[in-house]
Structures are given as structure tokens and as C-alpha cells.
Write a protein that binds this DNA or RNA. Structure first.
Lengths: 90, 90
DNA sequence: CATGGATGTCATACTTATACAACAAAAGAT
DNA sequence: ATCTTTTGTTGTATAAGTATGACATCCATG
């Protein structure tokens, strides 16, 4: 069957964190020891990772799991980079 | 097929945390919204929970995921309760 | 002892996570 | 414009997580 998700997948920051390191999905996949397609699935939120994989991912990025995965959408990085402004302008 | 785990399951502190709250598996299961057998499987480490379930569990116990689940065995609670002694005696 | 609650075990079924292959589309570099 | 890398898509296959039902065991307590 299709790999399409039925349940609402968890949100994650894998793509941003990976991009920040200048890694391709294939490179990150190799580091994590998973298939490169798996990273794609995770970033596209077609499914959530196993707890074990989630731990390897957050360990690699040196962040707590809750900073990489969340049941509720992540705020834009801007809010972490520049506090005191909520409205966007340019 | 059997539900027996092939891969080495993650360690967790669900049983202790649940016992501390004086909850039965059935009660915890209801709180978490899973089948009561599932809690048993997790405590017996017959398999690891999904990331989503792990998040619900750690949220309920008000602990970070890493404090409830670990790839390496947890030290005995004694070491958290009484620092300064590593060897057991009585 | 009998009853009940909590736990462990077994079997079956369904859903989800992961792997892998092949190909299309997008983006970058030359 | 071609070559290469990266990403998205589709399809198939296997493993792992979860639900359920049935039954056994252990322990407490009436």
C-alpha cells in the first residue's frame, strides 16, 4: 500500500537543522544509519520516526527530542533568533 | 506472528514512575489512550513505543523523554536519591 | 477457600515505520 | 544546454507497534 500518512504526523525541524549543517538527505541518512528515502519521508512528515530513530536524530543535532519533534507546529526560527517581534513585516 | 522483539528494545522507567503514582497498568493505559496490554509490552520491553506515544508518556510524567527512555540501561534510582555512594552493601 | 485485581502469555489482525528500486522534476555548476 | 546532485513520487516488501480476546498465574483479602 501507499506510504501515505493517515494520522496527523508530528512536526519536526529536521530539514532546517540538516540545512544548517549543509548536509544532503543522503549524507544525513548515512550518518543516522537509515535509508536516504527515510529522511525524505520524515521531512515531508509522511510518517513519524521510531523513538529509537528520533533519539539518534536529536542526539546528532545535540538537542532534546522535544526541540526536534513536536505535536504542535514549531514557531518560525525568527522568533528564536529575534525576540520582541511577533508580527512579520519584511 | 509473535510480538517478540528482535531488536534490543529501549530501556524505560515506566514501571517505576507508574508505581510511584500508585497506578495500575490499566489505569495508566486509559490515561494514555492505549490498550492496557500495550503498557505491559512497554514495561516488559517487548517493544518500544512510537515517538508519539513516548511523548504522551513523558508529558504525563512531566519529564523529558530522555528521562523516561534511554538506549543505555538506567542507573538504579538509589543513585538519584542518595549521591556519594556507588557500591551496594545492604 | 473463593473471589477479584494485577500481571504475564499466546494468537491474530491491522497500521505504521523502514528499505529499496526506478524514475521525474528541480536546482547548481560548468 | 548538458551534467550532476538533490529532492519528490510511486510502488512493493518486510519489520515493528498497537488493539483485542482468551487464558494462566500470583497475590491480597473477605
Amino acid at each position: 500500500m501507499a506510504v501515505k500518512s493517515t494520522a496527523q504526523a508530528l512536526h519536526n525541524r529536521i530539514a532546517v537543522l540538516r540545512t544548517e549543517r549543509g548536509l544532503s538527505r543522503a549524507q544525513l541518512a548515512e550518518i543516522l544509519g537509515v535509508n536516504y528515502q527515510t529522511v525524505g519521508y520524515l521531512e515531508r512528515r509522511e510518517y513519524a520516526p521510531s523513538l529509537d530513530l528520533a533519539m539518534r536524530i536529536s542526539a546528532y543535532f545535540e538537542l532534546p527530542i522535544e526541540s526536534v519533534f513536536s505535536r504542535t507546529p514549531f514557531p518560525p526560527i525568527r522568533t528564536a533568533l529575534h525576540r520582541g517581534r511577533s508580527e512579520a513585516s519584511a
